[in-house]
């Protein structure tokens, strides 16, 4: 078992087979630097719990194809990314820091899927982004492809 410590001083025990999906921790273990608790100063316990949940579920991912558990994993992934934008941001930053490739892919794809067909206004509101482009800069991009900003498929709702 490997012990991880979040930045709010909570400790979690994780099976080595699960935690080595993190390239960062795998390297630490290989270099013999994981003998005691591994502190993770960038990750809070709420986010770490989510990440560990993912690691435990994906522990036997290589075998999933053989045992027909692929659908089960897919369903888990869909449920897993069903979270708010702030939480998704925290999980992405944690996956980036721990270098968990598959989790990064899953989260970035989820972010892209949520942005599809959304209006600019809706994206800014959902992600709490203040527009800092000048009107000219904005218009320049719109003029390149005015059709991308209109049409019935553009979704202006915030959810």
């Amino acid at each position: 078992m490997v012990k991880l410590k979040s930045n709010d001083d909570k400790e979690f025990e994780v099976e080595e087979a699960a935690v080595i999906q993190s390239e960062m921790i795998k390297n630490m273990i290989e270099d013999g630097c994981a003998t005691s608790v591994i502190p993770l100063p960038n990750i809070d316990s709420k986010t770490l719990i989510k990440v560990i949940e993912y690691l435990n579920k994906h522990i036997n991912m290589g075998k999933a194809a053989e045992t027909g558990e692929e659908d089960d994993l897919k369903e888990f992934d869909e449920q897993f990314v069903n979270m708010g934008w702030e939480e998704l941001f925290d999980v992405i930053m944690a996956a980036n820091y721990l270098n968990i490739h598959e989790l990064m892919e899953l989260c970035c794809q989820s972010a892209a899927d949520r942005l599809k067909n959304k209006s600019v206004r809706a994206v800014r509101e959902m992600l709490k982004i203040t527009n800092d482009l000048t009107e000219e800069e904005e218009q320049e991009i719109i003029n390149d492809a005015p059709w991308a900003f209109e049409g019935p498929e553009i979704d202006d709702t915030v959810n």
Partner: peptide, 16 residues
């Protein structure tokens, strides 16, 4: 990089 065509233009107008 996961967005295609029109979606990418919308993405670029969000902020700097």
């Amino acid at each position: 990089s996961r967005l295609v065509v029109g979606e990418y233009f919308v993405f670029r107008v969000v902020c700097k």
